[in-house]
Design a protein around this nucleic acid. Structure first.
Length: 663
RNA sequence: CGCGGGGUGGAGCAAUAGGCAGCUCGUCGGGCUCAUAACCCGGAGGUUGGAGGUUCGAGUCCUCCCCCCGCAACCA
């Protein structure tokens, strides 16, 4: 080994918002970062991997209140839960940070003040339509009939004092930086999006303080203001490694900054490639080398959401399928720039088809043959012909080929290379037919050589597999009685020492029976206790949900018979229907409800053509407050039943005339 | 003309700089028995969403059109 100091490599994930328990989509980013961090360490870099939680803001204040907790207690709980989830996934972060850390908060105040003093931040007015009872601002387009879209009460045009960051001042520099650093934004399509949609049209100044809530870092020179999310959250990347706003930076900061890679979801790439670089420019700091906006992990083809009820948690998956199976899935199934998909069926396919059949089976059969033919002792090297050199060549060049893919952040492709080697090795077994060689005493040397080659393939790939599936890689090395897991050992073929006794054989992955496993998953999910953090997710979802779900209602969610009486339902006949001229999803219906002909705008254009619903008998909510939808006033609502994207009218039979009441 | 992503054998995806359209799964047939009903070989299956154009040559470049998916506006 050389005495040169290792090259530093600083990698971050976005920090997780402490509003509830993270789902597998959130975890995917962390696993991705972990694999990169482990690979860079393996490749000889001095890696600093930072992740953590973002803990301020109105939403958290609201949720804490809804949960009946003090905000700090609430974020302590959620942050702990998030960290526990990271740990469940075996994440090798070097530091887990929290934005409620006093040291961080003090630095943010200083940074904020410096911006203000240099004239990058000025005090202005946040303007909009304000609904007093709701304490919320709305834009012109959000208003309904000029009233609050939430509660329907009148709004007033109001201004709130706020500080703004002058982005325009740095826009030109940023544009030049992005153009002269083609690797800065990845994937490249995002780069064009940022330039064309945001930077070139002109950046609007960014609101960086609020007075309407107080769960945040106070602006020390202006009581009543708290720092709004951007500066607080993004600056974690510099405050924690040791940036010092008013003095000498800590050595660790000098070593690691600028960051080599910010790994973030594609939804927040804008903040990391526009606001964050500008904030750094204003501090005279160098910009991060690369920002990668990764795709999303979807569930069943759609985005995970609480209202859809398709949220999947990482710890549940790990419980049902095993840690490395889930890590493998996250890393292997996700393409570089396209959203990936997760279903139980796909997980089972991957595990059985690749981890069990290809990887596990090769290890298993190699171990079994070595045990059977050589009493579990590593036989002597014996290289014979072209058959061998092909395999050996593929194994010896594995690191180099994987490394190329990793440099481009093509994680899935890099793992495919490892899997391909195992496919090649399985083929090698068939080509050489050790069981035939075993029958001929003259071929004993050759038999030993074949097994030696296979064991070497396992050893070399195990070193690399440790970066992605740490437990699995370790198990493989242990079976080989090999303790050297260095990159150097991965580069040279033939390091296993003949005569060494192998370790105990162990199945790396168990085959999953799809039917049995799915039954077990359902049973587990139905019976497991809900953690407090998951409960917070439910609380979080509640204000948005219009109806209690179909669970047995608890006391609080019952309505009284009087409440029901408030809803006036009537039978109506659709007299005419036409498409809304200015909307894709809406139909404009004229509905006879006995007392009058109503105009009802309904969002069913995707499901029904106007002509096919004319004349239908339907159920109408008659006393619903009229609302303007895309410019047309709708007087009421048609009841529909919905399942799996299919709609059906909730309708009385056609012999009930218009105007009939519904009870 | 809102922004963006995408249409490739049954399914999911590849195809660096235009150059024989590949891979995995599934399916059909064969082989093998060391192995977790696994592994190996072979076959069938595609006018690359459509129509034009550039070119010796187009999945790839240009023009127009159709369809799907996110986000946004509009799900009362």
């Amino acid at each position: 080994m050389s005495d040169e100091p290792k090259k530093p490599f600083y990698i971050t994930t976005a920090i997780a918002y402490t509003s509830g328990k993270p789902h597998i989509g959130n975890l995917y980013e962390i696993v991705l970062a972990d694999a990169i961090a482990r690979f860079m360490r393996f490749s000889g870099y001095d890696v600093y991997f930072q992740t953590g939680t973002d803990e301020h803001g109105q939403k958290i204040q609201d949720k804490a209140e809804a949960a009946g907790m003090a905000p700090q207690t609430f974020v302590d709980m959620i942050s702990g839960e998030i960290r526990r989830n990271w740990d469940v996934m075996n994440i090798s972060y070097d530091r887990f940070i929290r934005t409620t850390d006093p040291d961080h908060m003090a630095k943010i105040q200083k940074i904020f003040k410096r911006y203000y003093e240099q004239g990058d931040i000025y005090k202005g007015m946040y303007e909009g339509w304000y609904c007093k009872p709701d304490e919320s601002f709305y834009t012109e387009s959000q208003l309904i009939d000029g009233k609050c879209p939430d509660c329907g009460r009148p709004v007033e045009y109001a201004k709130e004092e706020a500080y703004f960051f002058k982005l325009s001042k740095y826009a030109k520099r940023l544009e030049e930086y992005i153009e002269s650093h083609p690797d800065f934004i990845q994937p490249e399509s995002r780069k064009n999006e940022m330039l064309n949609n945001f930077i070139r049209p002109g950046l609007k100044d960014l609101c960086v303080s609020r007075t309407s809530f107080n769960w945040g870092i106070p602006v020390d020179f202006d009581p009543g203001h708290v720092v709004y999310v951007w500066i607080d959250a993004l600056a974690n990347y510099i405050t924690f490694p040791g940036y010092n706003p008013d003095g000498e930076d800590e050595p660790s900061f000098k070593k690691y900054w600028p960051a080599d890679l910010h790994l973030v979801g594609k939804d927040i790439i804008r903040f990391h490639t526009i606001y964050w670089p500008i904030m750094l420019m204003a501090l005279d700091l160098p910009l991060p080398k690369k920002v990668f906006g990764h795709p999303w992990l979807l569930v069943g083809g759609g985005k995970m959401s609480k209202s859809k009820g398709n949220v999947i948690y990482a710890d549940d998956l790990v419980h049902s399928f095993g840690l490395d199976a889930i890590r493998y899935y996250c890393l292997k199934e996700m393409p570089f720039a396209q959203d990936g998909n997760l279903t139980y069926d796909l997980i089972i396919d991957r595990v059985n088809g690749e981890l069990v059949n290809i990887l596990g089976n090769l290890v298993n059969r190699t171990m079994a043959m070595t045990n059977q033919y050589f009493d579990g002792v590593i036989p002597a090297k014996y290289i014979d012909d072209a058959m061998d050199s092909d395999l050996i060549n593929e194994a010896s060049t594995l690191f180099e080929r994987v490394s190329e893919k990793m440099a481009d952040l093509k994680i899935s492709d890099s793992m495919q290379l490892i899997l391909d080697l195992f496919r090649r090795a399985n083929k090698y077994v068939d080509e050489t037919q050790p069981w035939v060689l075993a029958k001929d005493p003259d071929k004993r040397e050759r038999l030993g050589g074949v097994l030696y080659n296979l064991l070497e393939v396992i050893r070399i790939s195990a070193c690399l597999i440790r970066c992605y599936l740490p437990d699995t890689g370790d198990k493989m090395l242990k079976m080989l009685s090999c303790s050297d897991n260095s990159m150097e050992s991965c580069l040279s073929y033939g390091l296993l020492v003949p005569g060494t006794k192998l370790g105990e054989s162990e199945k790396l992955f168990e085959r999953i029976d799809p039917v049995k496993q799915m039954a077990a998953v359902e049973e587990y999910l139905a019976n497991k206790p809900k953690s407090a953090a998951e409960a917070a997710n439910v609380i979080a979802a509640a204000p948005a949900a219009e109806q209690p779900s179909d669970n047995t209602p608890d006391e609080g969610s019952y309505i009284t018979i009087d409440d029901l009486g408030k809803v006036e339902l009537k039978v109506g006949k659709i007299i005419s229907a036409e498409k809304h001229p200015d909307a894709d999803k809406l139909l404009i219906l004229k509905v006879d409800t006995g007392e009058k002909i109503r105009t009802i705008v309904s969002g069913i254009a995707k499901y029904y053509k106007p002509e096919e619903i004319t004349g239908r008998t339907v159920t109408v909510v008659a006393n619903l407050k009229p609302a303007k939808l895309r410019g047309i006033v709708s007087e009421g609502m048609i009841l529909m039943a919905e399942h799996d994207g299919k709609l059906s009218f909730v309708a009385p039979s056609d012999d009930i005339p218009a105007g009939g009441s519904v009870r």
